[in-house]
């Protein structure tokens, strides 16, 4: 239970960074931290006390394995997170090229 709460604290740190900071790179950092927290929560839910990793080996009959389903979901989610982070960085670099700053309060001409 306390583990879930620590994971939630990490998520709310990411939310705080997204909502409060003015720098675009800091906002991307907040998105990354929130994404880490969500991935961690999936794996925490899948854990089984005293379990083994879900890889069968020859001749062994181990039955207490952890849940493989959230691990499979998180595996795709991590790669998607990298792609979306790259997309955010590309947009941030184009904004820097156009306005000369990373500060979102200095960007006034929203018409493009």
């Amino acid at each position: 239970m306390a583990v879930y709460l620590l994971c939630l604290v990490l998520f709310s740190l990411g939310i705080y960074c997204i909502l409060r900071k003015r720098n675009i790179i800091k906002i991307i950092v907040g998105v990354i931290i929130a994404e880490y927290a969500v991935n961690l929560f999936f794996i925490l839910v899948a854990y089984r006390m005293g379990g083994r990793s879900p890889i069968l080996s020859e001749g062994a009959t181990i039955k207490n394995m952890v849940d493989p389903l959230p691990q499979a979901l998180v595996l795709t989610s991590i790669v998607i997170g990298l792609a979306t982070t790259a997309l955010l960085v590309a947009i941030a670099m184009k904004i820097y090229e156009k306005y000369g700053t990373f500060d979102i309060t200095k960007i006034k001409e929203l018409k493009g």
């Binding site: 790179i25 794996i43 899948a46 854990y47 990793s53 991590i78 990298l82 960085v89 820097y96």
Partner: peptide
């Protein structure tokens, strides 16, 4: 937490993510 597949993927993705972010923040 006994998830070796996810651990390998997270390790290598983290390296690439770090390189991309450093590319965006240098000399700014």
């Amino acid at each position: 937490l006994k998830a070796p597949d996810v651990a390998i993927t997270q390790l290598v993705v983290e390296l690439l993510c770090l390189i991309i972010l450093i590319r965006a923040t240098l000399k700014r």
